[in-house]
């Protein structure tokens, strides 16, 4: 292009043959049009983050760092902070991850390496399908089916491990008539429900990566006399490390932002307590869902700030996942 434009009719030399023919008019329109779409989507999606960020400036200016340390959400008294909801968000996500990570990993390994052949196809479909099931269904499942059983489990945990701050409950767990209401709507049960939606999500990613572990290396490990677990440990797991971390992070990002399933189970309480078995906690998304309706302009700005913090957290989690998957060997294989 540049060569062609330099060679004008003034110079006596013949213009060099044009190497790049340039674009046809239709192509120029096509490229311009798709650039326009790309730019529009960039603006649209970027605007969400930008808007949340800009809207939170007044809040940060008004409350300063206290926004992160204030426990109450009490706009009438001008005391607004996200310490409690951040803790609640992390508690729910922690329970969800502790439960879902081992199960998802084991299930993914089972599907890729242990399941009988006739079962494998079915299990892959089932996991993919369950990953698409709306979270609200896991929410009502947790509320109606899981809660009565999980309450017993929570009581048992507090009976035997009550000395551990996480499992302490502010009531006598050994009482003959135990206070069930103290256990009903805890971060623990909400976390269990969230873990149910996290398992298929993480498992689907992990399974896809495990299945790509190179056949030659599996056979080599077998030929060296390895047991099946030996093959998994030395070939499949190292190869799938990126998928394991990536799938887990993906599930964690979902768990941090989950709204409806958590809102059904959790009874809102703005307290700073590590007691995950005890009723009452609140998550960031729950805070937004329950307060946006009657919020004034400044309150809305505070809610947007809480949303912005949640957004930044999920963004970090997700970017880390993308980075890890991209860097790993299995990630390179999936890119083709």
């Amino acid at each position: 292009m540049t060569i062609a434009s330099q060679g004008g009719p003034v110079t006596p030399r013949r213009t060099p043959r044009q190497l790049s023919p340039g674009l046809e008019p239709t192509d120029r329109i096509f490229e311009g049009f798709s650039l326009g779409i790309g730019a529009f989507v960039l603006i649209l999606t970027g605007a969400v983050g930008l808007f949340l960020g800009l809207e939170s400036i007044p809040t940060f200016r008004h409350y300063g760092f206290h926004f992160f340390t204030t426990v109450d959400w009490n706009p009438e008294l001008d005391k607004v902070g996200i310490a409690a909801v951040l803790l609640g968000t992390f508690e729910v996500a922690l329970v969800a991850m502790v439960v879902s990570f081992p199960l998802a990993l084991a299930f993914a390994l089972f599907i890729s390496d242990y399941a009988p052949k006739w079962l494998k196809g079915w299990l892959i479909s089932a996991v993919d399908l369950m990953a698409a099931v709306p979270s609200i269904i896991y929410g009502i499942w947790g509320f109606y089916l899981l809660k009565p059983h999980a309450m017993n489990l929570a009581r048992w945990l507090s009976q035997h491990f009550g000395w551990f701050p996480l499992f302490h409950v502010n009531t006598d767990p050994n009482a003959a008539v135990w206070q069930q209401s103290q256990y009903t709507s805890s971060a623990f049960i909400a976390g269990l429900a969230v873990s149910m939606m996290a398992i298929p999500l993480a498992c689907a990613v992990m399974r896809a990566v495990f299945d790509q572990a190179p056949l030659g290396e599996r056979e080599a490990a077998m030929a060296l006399g390895g047991t099946q677990w030996g093959v998994v440990k030395t070939v499949v797991l190292p190869f799938g490390k990126g998928g394991i971390i990536g799938g887990t992070m993906l599930a964690l990002g979902r768990a941090l932002g989950e709204t409806a399933a958590v809102a059904i189970i959790l009874s809102p309480a703005y307290i700073l307590s590590p007691r995950i078995l005890q009723s009452g906690a609140q998550t960031t998304s729950g805070l937004i869902a329950s307060n946006f309706g009657n919020a004034s302009q400044s309150q809305l700005s505070a809610l947007l700030t809480a949303g912005f913090v949640l957004f930044v957290i999920t963004l970090i989690v997700n970017s880390t996942a993308a980075f890890v998957i991209g860097r790993s060997r299995s990630g390179a294989a999936t890119e083709i």
Partner: peptide
């Protein structure tokens, strides 16, 4: 296009409630 890809990938993690809050505000 790389910029677009980065932003689009980052936005797959956007919790739905924030999209709702964005439209609301």
């Amino acid at each position: 296009a790389r910029v677009v890809r980065t932003v689009v990938e980052a936005m797959t993690a956007l919790p739905e409630i924030l999209a709702g809050l964005f439209v609301y505000a």
